[in-house]
Amino acid sequence: MDLTFLLMTLLKIVLICFVFAMILGAILTWGERKLSAVVQDRIGPNRASILGVTALGLMHPIADMLKAFTKEDFVPAGANRFLFAMAPMLAMVPPLVVFAVVPFGPGPDFVIAPLDTGVLFIFAIGGMGIYGATLGGWSSNNSFALLGSLRAAAQMISYEVSMGLNLVGIFMIFGTVSLSNIVLGQGQLLWGWLPMWGIVVQPVAFILFMTASMAENKRAPFDLPEGESEILGYNLEYSSMRFALFFLSEFVEIVVIAAMAATLFFGGWQIPWVDPQGTAGGWITVGQVAAFVGKVVFLCWVQLIIRWTLPRFRYDQVMALGWKYLLPLSLLNIVATAVVLAML
């Protein structure tokens, strides 16, 4: 562990967490508004401008940021000041830390920490995201916020279970929980021509995983913990930058889910039939990193489309979906995968 290693790691952290994840998250706030406008036959944000340049409304994230920084930072009376300040950070940090194990390209140069326990690490850190929502609601000293945080805790705990079980099939097929090795495994070909991507060998798991992780991220159709349009949620008392942190953490988590799905189900940095071992170097490596980023952006778009297509569930429906449908289906998926693997 010498100085160059530490500096390189620091550089990777800055590039991946702050340049890639944060900026993509910020752009997604714009993307979501534009997309919702298209879905609802509107034009969407187009007026914020710098010297007359509106760039299709791309100036809006900047305006939002300035607004968040300059608004009054309000702390309600009777709130637990320490936890009230901690909660947004607890919400923001886990989705950023998760990027430590995501391989952006072939080899150890394109991942911050190629942990052998990759996917488990993601679950461990991602599971801590619950604390932000839970403590934020409790520390606000507001009954509605407390109810919202209880809804958040119950929902996130429930879906975490099936989210983890969905991926067991992937682990069984590729025989590893390391993200880099799973990506390498997806470079194999089925019957000599079909890329062995996760979505090809585990299509059910992909659908279940996307459902569970969108519920985990508390976005519509599962946005009952916050219910921004009417039922009030855990972030009710938050304003200015603290609210912005909650808001941005949700969008960074969209990127996390997209990166996980791309890595586990869409072959990560693999381009089909091209250099499956990732040893080519040169422009092919550049293309592979670009392929990964492209897959992530596509899966972010899928999540936005789902969010603006479906209406919100009732809370009992959310719970029933998690425990009565997703969980048994994930268990069935494991059994089916085991039977197929045993017969092969």
């Binding site: 679950f123 461990a124 705990i157």
Partner: peptide, 18 residues
């Protein structure tokens, strides 16, 4: 290490707080 976080921090303690 990872199991410790998944089971205790992500599961048991949340139920505690709940």
């Amino acid at each position: 290490a990872v199991t410790q976080i998944i089971v205790y921090v992500g599961g048991v303690l949340i139920l505690f707080l709940f």
